[in-house]
Design a binder for these strands. Structure first.
Lengths: 216, 216
DNA sequence: GTCTATATTTCGATAGAC
DNA sequence: GTCTATCGAAATATAGAC
């Protein structure tokens, strides 16, 4: 979350003079851009909107990031990192623990990083013009390994015979739904964002259905 | 799909002279707009883009729909109709049949109307500025009835005790994933759109996991 | 590093000839 | 009903004074 600087110090929101200015302003801009892009996508977001959200003159935004696409790439890069840092199955050989931990980690991520999830969804909806490369070059290999693990559980009779890809998509879709469709779930929840307790309840039901659903 | 005219005839893609021109051109524009809006959302879509997709001069698009928002509302209205026309649980008192049919209907809809699903997702991602009203006024009531049906199954011990809202969200998310995240599933499928057979396989696994997951 | 002014393009929408 | 031309606003991006 925080960026280590070369001198070892950490820049937070506090404005600084000297060397930290660029780093600090870049972070503020990227934070604002994450909000804006997750709301209206790349084409639908103006640099003016990002500048306003960041509380920085538009010209300064261009000073740090010459073109809009430069901001977008940085923001998407961070989302890719979030995905790669998320839990995977390789930490456990035991399907019940592995699945439960994975679902829990994905739900926690949807709760703590909803903007990242929404950005991912927005990118894929628009045809994954930037994310496509990442999915092809990094996620694909990761996916093959994870699928192999689940397939081995099936081959050994530890879980039911299910389509492995579909199982992953169910977990991804169900957990990310709570970030991507938050506007909808809020309305259906009486115009109130879901509480942390409701997230935990949802996590419990998703875990129950998925685990029991594959025979655990 | 086809619109009945007052004279009883049907307009398809073929250009006509006389009374059918407006209706025919409006349909062509709406079809193009559905593609464009589902890709880049309302703000991110230009009237020029819609006109180009429709193969109609931009000025003509404005002749039929004075403002961009007029096109958008029409397209969203159709999506709302699709949702309401989709299957619900009230056709069956028996949970296994009801759930299986509902999942099947939602998967068929994701396959046959992916643009509608993507538009819905795009709208909700952008905060549901238009859909919000529909969700509040129509979907909410529908949802309460459906939830009550599922809750009665739980109360009568026909299915496991799960969070009913979460169960619905799992079904919606898992089925709509195949439309909304098609760009991603295609890449993970070797840069090839999923076949009808793969859709059926996915439908089978989703049904298996959901039904068994709630104790059926 | 900041910020006003501005160049250039694109966009939504309209006018008006045909 | 069609379509060229265009207006005014908004958007991306840059220049240049401070």
């Amino acid at each position: 979350m925080q960026k280590a600087k070369t001198d070892g110090s950490i820049s937070l929101n506090r404005r600084r003079t000297g060397k930290g200015i660029r780093e600090n302003n870049e972070r503020i801009i990227l934070k604002a851009a994450e909000v804006a892009f997750s709301e209206t996508g790349f084409k639908g977001t103006s640099v003016t909107r990002i500048a306003d959200l960041a509380g920085i003159p538009k010209a300064n935004v261009h000073y740090y990031f010459p073109r809009k696409i430069d901001i977008y790439r940085e923001v998407i890069d961070r989302v890719c990192q979030l995905w790669l840092d998320a839990a995977d199955f390789r930490g456990s050989d035991e399907p019940e623990t592995a699945l439960r931990n994975y679902i829990s980690a994905k739900m926690d991520l949807a709760y703590s990083e909803p903007l990242g999830s929404k950005l991912w969804a927005m990118e894929v909806l628009t045809g994954a013009p930037i994310l496509g490369e990442f999915i092809r070059e990094k996620l694909l290999d990761w996916f093959e390994l994870e699928k192999a693990q689940v397939q081995s559980w099936i081959d050994q009779g530890q879980i039911d015979t299910v389509d492995v890809q579909t199982l992953f998509y169910m977990i991804w879709a169900s957990t990310q739904h709570y970030a991507d469709f938050a506007a909808q779930t809020a309305i259906l929840n009486g115009d109130k964002a879901l509480s942390k307790d409701q997230f935990e309840t949802a996590k419990g039901t998703i875990s129950h259905v998925i685990l029991k659903g594959v025979g655990l």
